[in-house]
């Protein structure tokens, strides 16, 4: 007796959740403030805990970028030009990453605007605001992380609308 097993549908990756990013940003602010209470000189130095929190925030940001691109690729049937690993990995190349912020957000804008009629995601602006977020993070990492994840939320919204729209 042979049983016919129905073919398993490919699992589509969900878009990343943004709220953990906000939480990491808030945790950074809480930790930096707490350390200043314990030692007033903490503000002038880079401490281990704040550094770790920033690293966790950065890792989560890279995860979000990776996942955005996985969703874009799956949605485009593999035809999307930037692979998830490349999208996340190029953030780590000094100086090139400044250009890369514009490069991947413009490619995403091209995909989104192609799916939804009209210029829904404006080319250049998203990359510029992300760059502003990273610059802000140089001065205040907590606020910078919150700004980055606020942008991630907008990107997520646009990608969701584009992927839900008929191809």
């Amino acid at each position: 007796m042979s049983a016919s097993v129905p073919p398993r549908l490919p699992v589509r990756a969900p878009l990343p959740r943004v709220w953990p990013g906000y939480l990491i940003g808030l945790a950074f602010i809480l930790i930096a403030s707490g350390e200043m209470i314990v030692d007033r000189t903490a503000a002038q130095q880079e401490t281990l805990l704040t550094y770790l929190t920033w690293l966790i925030g950065l890792a989560y940001w890279l995860f979000c970028v990776h996942r955005f691109h996985r969703v874009l690729r799956e949605s485009a049937g593999g035809a999307y030009p930037i692979s998830p690993a490349r999208a996340a990995g190029f953030h780590l190349i000094p100086f090139y990453n400044l250009y890369w912020l514009f490069r991947w957000t413009n490619a995403a804008a091209g995909f989104v605007n192609g799916r939804i009629s009209g210029a829904f995601m404006r080319r250049g602006w998203t990359g510029g605001l992300l760059l502003a977020g990273f610059v802000l993070a140089r001065f205040d990492a907590g606020l910078g992380l919150i700004a980055l994840f606020a942008m991630a939320q907008l990107i997520r919204r646009d990608i969701r609308r584009a992927t839900e729209a008929p191809a």
């Binding site: 314990v38 000189t41 903490a42 401490t47 805990l49």
Partner: peptide
């Protein structure tokens, strides 16, 4: 101290 705090928390 700040170092003690960090060590304990981690």
């Amino acid at each position: 101290s700040l170092a003690d705090l960090e060590r304990a928390v981690i």
